[in-house]
Every structure is written in structure tokens, then in C-alpha cells.
Amino acid sequence: MIDIHCHILPGIDDGAQNLYDSLDMAKQAVSQGIDTIIATPHHMNGRYENRKADIMEKVQELNKRLTEEQIDLTILPGQENRIFGEILEGYEKGEIQTLADSSYVFIEFPTGHVPHYAETLLYDLQVKGLMPIIVHPERNSELMQNPDRLYEMVNSGTATQITAASLTGAFGKKIKKFGEQLIEANLTHFLASDAHNVKNRAFKMEEAVEEVEKKYGTDMLYFFTENAELLVNGQNIYREVPQPIKQKKLFGLF
């Protein structure tokens, strides 16, 4: 299994604080059936800046240590970009690290809102040949209240990734319910851990996979796992026709 969103690189954001934390996370990942992780440290979120060259160096160092420790896990480079207006300029300057050196790039919205320029930026990224993936939209309060906005983004070509812990209920019932609605409306394309440690922000992938298979069947599970493989291989992902989420379905959330 491939985990496309994880804060496993040591000492560069609010994920693993040191190499020992990284190794603990690696062991937990392997125990959950994960053999490949895309390391996605925060970038430009107001607290952390992690540029491509630094990420590449950290990935090489961690892979070397994993080999020495005989932990059967491969780390690939990535980046979790908080949305900012100059992201294309950053890409041109070689500061933006795409996921596994593919054309896919993570875009994170602030928790409480979606910037007014988001749709324009997502379009501009696609024109440039990049494929934006909105991370954890199920945890964004504006999208919960106005899911039509996410529908329009997905309908215009943007992909999304939901968090395993959201589906297990670790972030609460409202977020779990909205995550399920995104799956049912074909508004998400990836399932990933967004793990930061082995305790309060652990992988939860094994639990989430069981939840998906139980609730939606093996086809949906295959959809998520295959899309992660296609991303790593730089290929086009599977998509189903997105559907709007009817507002009446959300009334129970608030």
C-alpha cells in the first residue's frame, strides 16, 4: 500500500521531531501494510517553509537510515503546500516539490475558509501542466457548509485526498460524515494517512481501509489504492463523474 501524505521527515515540521520518531513511524507504517510513503512536509503555512532541495536531501538521508535499520519502506519526496498566490512562481524557481516527482501537487486550504482566489489558482496550475490535489477537504469548515464549491473545483479537474483518521472518526462525527459524503458523491480520489506521529496523529490506514471496504466494497478500496499507484507512476488517475452534495444531507452536521 502507498501512503501519499505523511509527515515522516525528521525535524522539519510538526511531524516527526527527530530520527527516532521517523523510525517509529516507519515501523508503524509497515505494520499497517504500507511499503511506500510520500513525505509531505508543510510549506508556506505561516510556520514552516520546506523547499524542494531540502526535502530531497532529507528523503535521501531517511531512506539510507531505513536501509541500515532493515525497515522495508521506501520514502518518496513530496510537499504539502498551503495555498498561496505565488505558488507557480515558486514552482518555476524550483522550490515546489511535486508528489514523487510527478505532475501532481498538494494544495492545503486554511482550516476555516477557502481563499477567494482558489479556483483561479487551481485553474492556472492545470494550465501549467500540474494536477492540484486538495488535501483533507472534509476538515475544512467552509467546504462543509458549502460543498458546492468543492464540487465545482472537482468538476473543473482538481482532485482531492481525504484523511484516513477522518473516516475512523478520530476528528469527530461531523468530519467522518462529510468524508463519507465526499466518497459517495465521487468528490475524492485518494485516501492517505496525514500521519504526524505514532500516537495522537497516527496512520490509521488499516482501520480506514477496513471501513471503506465494509461500507463501500472492494471496488472503492481498489479505486483508492490504484490511484495512489498511478500517481507514483506519473499516470492519469481514475475518476468518477462528480455529483453535488445535496444541502439537506448536511443539515444533520450542524
Rank of each mutant, 00 (worst) to 15 (best):
E80K: 07
I162D: 04
N140Q: 04
D24M: 15
Q70G: 05
Q243R: 15
K174L: 05
V105G: 10
G15T: 05
Y20P: 03
H189L: 12
P242Y: 03
V127Y: 06
V154L: 09
P115Y: 00
T67A: 13
I34A: 13
N155V: 04
K64E: 00
I107R: 01
G252P: 02
A202E: 07
S166V: 01
P77K: 12
Q145L: 09
A29E: 12
V114R: 11
F203A: 05
K204Y: 06
G217V: 13
P41D: 13
A164Y: 14
K249Y: 09
A195Y: 03
K215D: 13
M220L: 11
D72C: 04
M144E: 01
K93Q: 14
T163R: 14
M1H: 13
D101V: 14
N18I: 08
L19Q: 11
N50R: 05
G78S: 14
Y117D: 00
L62A: 03
G33Q: 09
A195H: 06
L143G: 02
K173F: 08
P77I: 12
Q181T: 00
Y123D: 01
Q126P: 08
N200C: 01
K214L: 12
F109S: 03
A165K: 08
F171G: 01
I75G: 04
S31P: 08
E152G: 11
C6N: 13
K128P: 02
K176Y: 03
A170L: 03
E138P: 03
R65Y: 09
K173A: 11
A118S: 03
Y117K: 00
F178E: 10
I133V: 12
F171W: 09
E89K: 01
T40N: 14
H116M: 06
E142C: 01
H116Y: 07
E69I: 04
I96T: 08
R139K: 10
A118R: 02
K173E: 11
E57K: 04
T111P: 07
